[in-house]
Design a protein around this nucleic acid. Sequence first.
DNA 1: CTGTTAGCGCATTCAA
DNA 2: TTGAATGCGCTAACAG
Lengths: 347, 347
Amino acid sequence: MTVTLADVAARAQVSPATVSRVLNGNYPVAAATRERVLRAVDELDYVLNGPASALAAATSDLVGILVNDIADPFFGIMAGAVQSEIGGPGGRAGGERMAVVCNTGGSPERELTYLTLLQRQRAAAVILTGGAIEDAEHADAIAGKLRRLTEAGTRVVLCGRPPSPDTDAVALTFDNRGGGRRLTDHLVNLGHRRIGYIAGPEERTTTRHRLEGHRAALAARGVPDDPALTVHGPYDRRSGYDATDELLRRAPDLTAVVAANDTVALGACAALRDKGLRIPDDVSVAGFDDLPFSIDAVPALTTVRLPLHEAGARAGRIAMSKEKPPPGGVATVHGELMVRGSTAGPR
Amino acid sequence: MTVTLADVAARAQVSPATVSRVLNGNYPVAAATRERVLRAVDELDYVLNGPASALAAATSDLVGILVNDIADPFFGIMAGAVQSEIGGPGGRAGGERMAVVCNTGGSPERELTYLTLLQRQRAAAVILTGGAIEDAEHADAIAGKLRRLTEAGTRVVLCGRPPSPDTDAVALTFDNRGGGRRLTDHLVNLGHRRIGYIAGPEERTTTRHRLEGHRAALAARGVPDDPALTVHGPYDRRSGYDATDELLRRAPDLTAVVAANDTVALGACAALRDKGLRIPDDVSVAGFDDLPFSIDAVPALTTVRLPLHEAGARAGRIAMSKEKPPPGGVATVHGELMVRGSTAGPR
DNA sequence: CTGTTAGCGCATTCAA
DNA sequence: TTGAATGCGCTAACAG
């Protein structure tokens, strides 16, 4: 029914082995023979059987990318950047690699399940994006999986996530703490003292690091850290909206709101606007990540720019061994404070 | 080195076939035996070999999703929705399908290449999202590929794309024409006569259909269609910015701008603002898609809401045969006009 | 309900 | 430079 390599071999009057060799281009084949084979491939409209090839060669050309939410541009940008680097030469069978994007939804179980699925596919590489879940048991489970993956020859790269100890995974970590510190520093410099903080979901490294940076900045300037001014919530717009309502209720005197990320900040802006508060005149707002839409917010959002595309591309290159891993297997990627119209001095 | 199904069989003192059966859960197996096998799997930390399994069963659990740009929430939302529907029913690692997201960047060649790659992987299903490229030769090539895919047992679903003739592909088409018509109708109703139109890239069905809707609305109301008022460009913010500058230069008297999509509309807003023009007082602006950020634009963007999540989910279910295809294999998905603050009567 | 027997389609030895 | 032979790890008849 479907045409196989043997069919091509028959048509080209060579052995199946020879066809395999020209297709993979790893062995020397006479130009004339190659021509004949290629023509047969074309005439028969032959398409290599991936699974069979992967089974025989014990490797596949699939690259796994774990993301929390592919609908969120934060992850979409990284995933796209990875994609752009995993094609090209170096691979077998035309060197074309395919990205398997796995939406974990932030769930620890799904993270593990997908890792197992990727292991099952004998993925060439796996890239984990986004912050890690802070649970010792889960971290161990993940580390175990990663170890088994690397043992099986799968390259593992963490992109925007802290290193996984006792693991050969290369880590490209975002400096969330430093970014958070600079952001709050900026607000304190402007004269703010009552700063609401809408943190991300609890038990995640990203949340904790950004919050630690915030608190470090406050502490460094002797600004009291009122626990009532911190609210946790998911990384979405609604969370920003609701949390802002809550903060305003708890502390009507606040003069600034720092959000876990830009999406949350947009929700915060909406809540303030709906309350008749002007930005930044009445309340300043700041985000994190500098997603593409942030510059179009009105006023434009002050935020910390994370080089998502660059980081994703680098992770992809390292996964493909096109670039050598950073010394020690760990590199820190810094964010840049983008001061825009949404922040100003307190009224 | 790596543990195989035979190892598990040996440890559980059953035949490999039995292990395969409990793992796939398709045949009846005695509870006691199943227990023993599962225990052995656990103790040996066994992970099924996907390629081998796919080879033997002649099917894989990979589902391909073609998108123009995964960093664009328009595609990210659909991809995420598809993902959420392709997982298996059970929580166990059986029946779990994985999504292979392919970024075509809108390039015809890459579209074909990815289709071939997916065919090579023996993908269980393929879902193509976004508008089609309007080139007869390319359309034929695509149709040929799709035909070969379905012949090989791969289910093909088009999501937000017109039907592909002479093909078994199920199509969930967006009513871009109707949406475009309603949007411009709304503006004409408000009293606008000089409406700039920033169209998407040429030679794409989405672009053409939205533009046709726009022109149909103008024609129906007897509003002259000045060719100078239409500018083409890619689906990005910058295009919206530049095109608006250009439109303003060509027609300083325009009172409204309709953009190809929300992202482009955001760029248009920025350009107007930079020129000191107020929205909607001086110029009204409308977008298309109703992406999440559109409601947070200031003023909130009037646009046409496309049920991206629902459409993606439905495409996923049809691809997985969880839902039966629409009669005739074609269904039209309608958009809803969302009137918000960015449009008002002309000054 | 379970074991036996054959391949699935290809990559890779080993010879020639 | 090429061909023949072997096995990758698993599923699917077919018996029993």
